[in-house]
């Protein structure tokens, strides 16, 4: 029996879709079977970020309406055998799905897959309620700024109210240089407030935007900083003990070794 995670944030644009695509990819690379579900009905984009748009034939709405069975609606990833996508309908909206229906889909998928990752829409209304309905655990994504952290806190409160207490935190788009200058919250500031388990810090990295536009989640590219960070998140989800702080200042020696290894 697999485990379903809702990837959520409260505030929009902090990286839920990016995390879902890359974490799904990283987990599949580590040999796990994964389904990613786009629960952002009406505003789908998980298929685009994963480069699967042209292969989507059926959506979760078709499954719910009985137009096709669940197996048939899953789209296989281009590069990974173990990774599948359940796309969202673009012509419907968040109110056209019921929490009970999402729960049923998740239950069915968990029978066959190790991980089900649900990309939630922004906000705390029905779209979020639907996305969370079938989840056993939550991955809360935030960026290190006051507004995003406030909304993440709100979401954590709502998750706990529905007895979803298995909550992990990912801090996305951390900019070391800004933290150093004292212009950005560091991970300690964020964890101090949210007080949930931190499972990863993803750096601000242009490669993320480039890879999203190309439809190739960068989790497969070993050289991007963010890719390595996603891999470590996946390993932590699988129970490996990998210490956070994520980044250490490369001194000249580790810098040299890094360059030698990369060359």
């Amino acid at each position: 029996m697999g485990k379903a995670f809702v990837v959520t944030s409260g505030k929009g644009g902090v990286g839920k879709t990016t995390v879902t695509a890359n974490l799904g990819t990283a987990l599949s690379v580590l040999g796990k079977t994964v389904v990613v579900i786009d629960a952002d009905i009406g505003l789908r984009n998980l298929d685009i970020v994963m480069g699967l748009e042209s292969r989507v034939v059926y959506t979760s709405m078709d499954v719910i309406q009985g137009n096709c069975d669940l197996k048939k609606a899953l789209v296989k990833d281009r590069r990974s055998e173990n990774l599948h996508l359940l796309a969202a309908s673009q012509k419907d909206d968040k109110t056209s799905i019921q929490p009970e229906q999402m729960r049923k889909i998740c239950m069915e998928l968990k029978e066959e897959y190790d991980f089900v990752l649900i990309d939630s829409p922004a906000g705390i209304e029905q779209g979020f309620q639907n996305a969370a309905a079938g989840a056993d655990a939550a991955v809360v994504v935030t960026t290190p700024d006051v507004a995003a952290v406030r909304d993440a806190d709100r979401i954590i409160g709502l998750l706990q109210q529905r007895d979803l207490n298995d909550i992990s935190l990912i801090i996305n788009r951390l900019d070391q240089a800004m933290v150093k200058r004292g212009d950005m919250m560091d991970q300690e500031d964020v964890v101090d407030i949210l007080s949930v388990r931190l499972i990863g810090v993803i750096p601000e990295d242009d490669a993320v935007v480039v890879s999203s536009n190309r439809g190739l989640p960068l989790a497969l590219e070993p050289n991007a900083m963010a890719a390595r960070a996603f891999k470590r998140v996946a390993q932590r989800l699988l129970g490996e003990e990998i210490p956070i702080p994520e980044f250490r200042e490369p001194n000249w020696f580790t810098g040299l070794i890094q360059r030698l290894l990369n060359s």
Binding site: V146, R150, D151, D153, R154, I156, G157, Q160, I193, S195
Partner: peptide, 26 residues
């Protein structure tokens, strides 16, 4: 528990003790 953003705890017959934090917005 921690009182998080958007949560309000009221008690009008005495004192309140929180075994946790009270976050911004709480």
């Amino acid at each position: 528990q921690t009182v998080r953003a958007g949560q309000v705890e009221r008690f009008y017959e005495g004192s309140i003790m929180v075994l946790g934090d009270v976050n911004p917005g709480g």
